[in-house]
Amino acid sequence: MSSEIRYISHPHPVTGVTNSKLGVWCFLASEIMLFGGLFSALVMLRGGSTNWPHGFEVLNVPLATLNTMVLITSSVTMVLSWASLVRKDLGKYRLYMAVTVLLGLAFLVIKSFEYGYKFEHHIYPSKSTFYAIYFTMTGLHGLHVIGGIIVNAYFLLPGSKLWHKDPEQFTGRIEAAGLYWHFVDLVWIFLFPILYLL
């Protein structure tokens, strides 16, 4: 068959990676630069500011710490779901993936409590550059979490049919989805101390 695209399930003999893995890493490289632009804005605005508040004085550190734990836990369940597929255990995969999706949702719920508390006190992004960058960065991160939940939920339910057709391709997809999910975690690992603890 001449019209088949190669290296979808099996790695390229020279590069050692599949198309999807290289593709998702390229995408993450782009994401690094996206958040790079925002972090650059943060550094520049804070550097030029005379009265930047301490995050721990105006934001809810306990809730954010809880959220950090939630996201870290979801990262480990994500990688365990992939490991289950490598062990050919679809049931365990389903379990871990379901937990990952639920933890993602929990993150959003906790985050919405934080936002709601701020809105109740009439604190909006327009209040100051601090809140502007806080809402923008956590909001964009939240959108990434939503995207990840959608992808993970897809692979939990309809997307898992692929397992019976091509288990290796499916495992590769979960690895790619995992890379994205860990990246979302990784962004939060920096956002949390920079916004909340300094």
């Binding site: 990262s75 480990v76 994500m78 990688v79 995992g178 890379l179 860990h182 990246f183 975690d185 990784l186 690992i189 920096f190």
Partner: peptide, 11 residues
């Protein structure tokens, strides 16, 4: 360090 752990082991 945390980011390094995630990138090196989970990723």
């Amino acid at each position: 360090v945390k980011a390094g752990l995630v990138a090196l082991f989970f990723m």
